[in-house]
């Protein structure tokens, strides 16, 4: 059961990669990367359940904040502002 979930999540990640590859504009690629970050949280959580090791859960928690910070930095870069505001 859980293995099927993992395969679906991997397929979703590939869809994000395709969007990041096709892109067209730079913000399109950034959106794909942002959503990939949120997907990775779910992936780490399911993986923690499969391997029964709750250290992956810590990774998921940390990843929420890190992907948030990364997205904010990318968005700042997009709007041509300096990073100290």
């Amino acid at each position: 059961m859980l293995n099927i979930y993992i395969y679906i999540l991997i397929a979703s990640c590939f869809m994000c990669f395709i969007r990041a590859w096709l892109g067209k504009t730079i913000p399109d690629r950034m959106v794909a990367i942002d959503i990939l970050g949120t997907l990775a949280v779910g992936f780490a959580a399911v993986w923690a359940l499969i391997t029964k090791q709750d250290i992956y859960m810590d990774i998921a928690l940390a990843w929420i904040f890190l992907s948030f910070l990364g997205t904010l930095a990318l968005a700042k870069y997009l709007s041509h502002q300096s990073l100290d505001e």
Partner: peptide, 16 residues
């Protein structure tokens, strides 16, 4: 965090 990130990206894209 997720809506704030989306909001920042949308605003940045519009400004770009």
């Amino acid at each position: 965090t997720s809506p704030v990130g989306a909001h920042a990206l949308a605003r940045g894209a519009y400004k770009a």
